[in-house]
Design a protein around this nucleic acid. Structure first.
Lengths: 157, 157
DNA sequence: TACCCTATTTATAAGGG
DNA sequence: TCCCTTATAAATAGGGT
């Protein structure tokens, strides 16, 4: 069998489903056997949303790690061609890291709330508990927003 | 063979390497055969950085899709319990989407630059070309930063 | 379309160099 | 630790319903 785009649509979908199943299994097994974080994201035309594995929350968690690496990890050590421009880029990157961090906190709150909604946990809670939860998230968001505004104010002085 | 964390360290590393290889192959094949976007992120203790597949840039691209889904997709349609608090959360989310978008543009510029550095493309360019590139990225970053500041100014009025 | 079957291919655990 | 080999287990393409 040759490794190329499968032109036959039905055969392609069958293959897609089979291999997707295997991919998920492989992620699960690698996670269990080796005790490491693994996630996969599939973006196919078969679903309007990306399919993520093992779970949206877990994927978010792993992406956070990935991103903090992308931004911080490679920062200074490659910067031995002393250039004003490159310094400037590192500065921007550092600011970005801070804003990203705030964003992620905010997002995590929102995602938690969404997950609760999706799982219908919220429907089983009484109104008071729901309101408490919402206020808590709301406070968190306000706190984060204020932090982000501060960040930008400091930047412009 | 039982599916549990492998206690033997050397055996675990062997398994890790074998299965990682298979996972990457599976991602590649699924991408080719079915013409879809797939990526995987592994965060193990064996490397300080997360290992991403098929490439950092491709992973970023797919994550962007994933994130825009997380934030925007589920927004309004679940909001039939008309609550001021929930509206407030949606508002925060909308702001987050905007900031995220700006962040992603910024990040993409930085990642492009990093990739160029890593691949040693930059070393093969002459100083003028390098400076032009850096200026271009610098301008882009300034533009994005200003957009973000505007966003926060509008927010606080 | 989706499921089931099975012949074949592929992955991989275990063992040795 | 890494590479190679091999017996076994698992995945899967293709065909039928």
């Amino acid at each position: 069998m040759k490794l190329a785009f499968m032109v036959n649509e039905s055969a392609r979908k069958i293959t897609y489903n089979k291999r997707k199943k295997s991919l998920k299994k492989m992620v699960d097994e690698l996670t269990t056997l080796c005790g490491i974080d693994v996630c996969a994201i599939l973006y196919s035309g078969y679903h309007s949303e990306p399919e993520v594995w093992p779970s949206p929350l877990e994927v978010q968690r792993i992406i956070t790690k990935f991103k903090s690496y992308s931004e911080v990890g490679q920062g200074r050590k490659k910067l031995n061609q002393e250039s004003y421009l490159m310094e400037r880029i590192v500065k921007s990157k550092e600011k970005l890291v801070k804003v990203e961090k705030a964003n992620w906190e905010m997002e995590r709150s929102l995602i938690l709330f969404q997950c609760l909604q999706q799982e219908n946990f919220i429907n089983t809670l009484n109104t008071n508990v729901l309101n408490d939860l919402a206020w808590e998230i709301n406070d968190k968001l306000k706190e984060i927003t204020s932090k982000m505004n501060q960040l930008d104010t400091n930047e412009s002085t």
